[in-house]
Write a protein that binds this DNA or RNA. Structure first.
Length: 725
RNA sequence: GGGCCUGUAGCUCAGGUGGCUAGAGCGCGCCCCUGAUAAGGGCGAGGUCGACUGUUCAAGUCAGUCCAGGCCCA
């Protein structure tokens, strides 16, 4: 925001009328060519005491009195602005008649409702001027100095001229009000100096030529957009954009290959001759344009239609967006074109996406991409865009240095990148915790697969424990979901699903339950091998699924994971798992059973926690659960009675009929009653379970009956030929 | 000012066609374990679903207005 003069200028109309006009840029007055009225706004003729009559928008009359010395004493009936179209007004200090014109952008927010129009100094004014066939007048040179006009300002720059023009208005009696106004004025983004608008000649690509716009719109409909709103955004932008101005006034860049005849000024349209420039570019690059003369660049004997043979080069360079828009032609050779997908931020709907589309439409007649994927903007912790100049940026290289590359990828992946994404240290720190959990879970699996050789030790599907087969099945479901999410680039859903499965289903549940089998059963016991086989298959599937997200960690896991013959040497060369790989034979009713058992487990854990808090037990293995249930739940518990202790990680579970007692809950799978007692017997030194049978075996007096059997099995296999881990 | 987009617990996310006391993980609090240990397990407390107004028997879910934020224009 900055202060600008806020002037009310009167313009003599044809007779005794004055039009009141408002401006903040006095320097544009010499180029003022018309007065704009809104066609549908009401205007009044306001008379002051000395008899002068001013045209002013009805809705601004009061404001005008407050801002000027004018005191209106009489108002006419209002008339619509459209009546002033074609009216004639005198310029306040030049010998020029300005017509009244109509423009929709005139508002009642500020000023007088009448806007002075300088088609040479603003885009809106330019288009208004075009509509009325008014000259584009901009009497300024490249340094912003007036090249013609009154001696009061001629030769001065626009900013120097401002006060002199104000003075000029005062001297001519044309200034009825003067104030200061804070408003935003355009500035150079680079040097921050104020800029002025000046109409100049430029090169354009005509969007209507060869139906470019229409054909581009057709192509937009054929592209697949992620997210889907991209299509609508691009369609509107292309449908409504102006012609593409492709020339820029810079000292260096890719040149516009255009020659003008030195004699008659005509464009050289000899395309055979122009082609010669291509040879120079192939040899020396585009710089050849600047290091060679027109005579050198053109083939000998090139002539203008007028017969002259001397040419000058166009000095303007090509818009850099044209260059970026043509990269697909350079990068995607042969059948690699078009690209499968372009990936960029939302600003590129106006930039790269669009320039690429338009250039490719012109050259190839088709979009250079099959899909457009748009990511959100990167914001800081407060939701502000990251900005280098404001010092709010985070350099990816520094993040990688501090947290590791996988963490940076995890940050990207954990969020929905299609909306704006925030970055903050606490967020990454939290993500680091998730990362460690994932890593540890993989590490646990690897540790328990030490020495496991799939070719030798894996059990057949038919030998898998029911729970293990069920876990494979669940992994298969996850695989299917993740593959679908990858297909639609929904990476954050993949990450969240994998993370939750690893943390909840594996670490907290399945792996925890497996510990008993893994640690206490004989190494080559089929139940233990079933556990390992399942762990191995699940880990192999998950590590492949997570590989695009945690590239280094996944590779590390893959290198340490026992592999079957033919497995890829790198996880990044392996294919995603297929659901079929994970499906073991589990009947639908068994799946339902296990889901129900999970509900039972949840109920039991709450009771165990209560028991812990009341100091009845510490470890869950100190507990014996007495369950009473009815109906289907009772049937379920009875048929899975042998599974219950390991599933709940307690030493003993008894199941009894509720005997018509009122159920504790009406929820499905609700156990009517779960009572926690201290487990019977003594703690087995080996498996930590409590058992009344500890001490019964004389060979192993400190262990339970299960461990006695396990130890016997180990002894037998120890005497047999070695069979690996 | 215009076009497009976003807004669910402290954080990151789920919640087709509107329907039970809004879910998950993390974080946090408390507890347990010590054979994943610079680990592991459990329980628990956290949300007026940006705001308001409508439509409906019923809205996080539909419509409208507004607020906050983002990208691009003006």
């Amino acid at each position: 925001m900055e202060e600008a003069p806020n002037l009310k200028v009167k313009r003599p109309g044809g007779g005794e009328f004055y039009a009141l006009v408002w401006t903040t840029t006095p320097w544009t007055l010499p180029a003022s060519m018309a007065l704009a009225f809104h066609p549908d706004l009401e205007y009044v003729l306001a008379e002051v005491e000395d008899g002068d009559v001013y045209i002013v928008a009805k809705g601004r009359a009061n404001a005008v009195q407050e801002e000027t010395s004018l005191r209106f004493v009489k108002f006419s009936e209002p008339v619509l602005g459209k009546v002033f179209e074609g009216a004639k007004f005198k310029h306040p200090f030049l010998d020029r008649i300005e017509p009244g014109v109509l423009a929709e952008y005139v508002t009642l927010e500020q000023g007088t409702g009448i806007v002075h129009t300088a088609p040479g100094h603003g885009a809106e004014d330019f288009y208004t001027g075009q509509r009325y066939g008014i000259d584009i007048y901009a009497p300024l040179d490249d340094e912003g100095r007036f090249t013609e006009g009154l001696p009061e300002y001629k030769g001065k720059t626009v900013f120097e001229a401002n006060p002199f023009i104000v003075k000029l208005l005062q001297e001519r009696g044309a200034l009825v009000g003067e104030g200061k106004l804070s408003h935003s004025y355009p500035h150079c983004w680079r040097c921050h100096n104020p800029v002025i608008f000046r109409a100049t000649e430029q090169w354009f690509i005509d969007l209507e030529h060869d139906k470019l716009r229409e054909r581009a719109l057709d192509e937009i409909a054929k592209v697949k957009w992620f997210p889907a709103w991209g299509e609508e955004r691009m369609r509107k932008m292309v449908a409504e954009r102006p012609d593409w101005c492709i020339s820029r006034q810079r000292f260096w860049g890719v040149p516009l290959v255009v020659f003008y005849c030195e004699k008659c000024g005509e464009l050289l349209k000899d395309f055979h001759a122009l082609r010669n420039v291509v040879k120079w570019f192939e040899k020396e690059g585009a710089d050849a344009w600047f290091t060679h003369s027109a005579a050198e660049l053109l083939p000998p004997g090139t002539k203008c239609k007028c017969g002259a043979t001397a040419f000058r080069k166009e000095k303007d360079i090509l818009d850099v967006w044209f260059e970026s828009g043509s990269t697909n032609l350079a990068v995607l050779k042969g059948n690699l074109w078009p690209a499968d997908a372009y990936l960029e931020g939302p600003d590129q709907y106006r930039g790269w996406f669009q320039s690429s589309l338009l250039v490719a439409m012109g050259v190839r007649g088709h979009a250079p991409f099959r899909q457009i994927i748009t990511h959100g903007w990167t914001l800081d912790a407060d939701g502000r865009p990251m900005s280098k100049s404001k010092g709010t940026g985070e350099l990816p290289a520094e993040i990688v240095e501090k947290w590791g590359a996988d963490l940076l990828r995890l940050w990207v992946t954990s969020q929905d990148y299609q909306t704006d994404m925030r970055f903050s240290e606490p967020m990454v720190a939290q993500l680091a915790e998730s990362y460690r959990k994932i890593r540890n879970t993989f590490r646990f699996a690897l540790g328990n697969l030490d020495g496991f050789d799939p070719a030798r030790d894996a059990v057949q599907d038919s030998q898998l424990q029911e729970m293990d087969a069920w876990m494979l099945y669940r992994t298969g479901e996850l695989v299917e979901k993740c593959r679908a999410w990858y297909d639609e680039y929904a990476f954050h859903r993949v990450f969240h699903a994998l993370h939750d499965f690893l943390v909840v289903d594996l670490s907290a549940f399945y792996f925890d339950v497996l510990k008993d089998r893994l640690y206490t059963f004989a190494r080559r016991n089929t139940a233990r091998r079933s556990a390992q086989t399942t762990m191995w298959r699940i880990t192999s599937a998950l590590v492949r699924l997570i590989a695009p997200i945690l590239v280094f960690t996944a590779e590390e896991v893959w290198k340490l994971l026992p592999r079957a013959a033919g497995d890829a040497p790198s996880v990044h060369m392996a294919l995603f798992p297929k659901r079929e790989e994970l499906v073991a034979n589990v009947a639908p009713d068994k799946k339902r059973n296990w889901e129900s058992l999970l509900d039972v487990r949840e109920q039991a854990l709450k009771k165990l926690e209560e028991a812990r808090n009341s100091k009845l037990i510490n470890s869950a293995l100190e507990a014996r659960l007495e369950m009473r249930a009815s109906g289907k739940t009772l049937d379920l518990l009875r048929s899975y009675a042998s599974w219950l202790p390991q599933l709940l990680i307690v030493s003993q579970v008894s199941v009894a009929s509720a005997n018509g007692k009122s159920p504790a809950s009406s929820a499905a799978n609700a156990v009517d009653e779960i009572e926690v007692r201290h487990a019977d017997g003594k703690k087995c030194e080996r498996c930590w379970n409590y058992s009344t049978h500890v001490g019964e075996n004389q060979t192993y007096p400190t262990v339970c009956e299960r461990c006695t059997a396990a130890l016997a099995e180990i002894e037998r296999s120890g005497n047999a030929k070695s069979g690996g881990a």
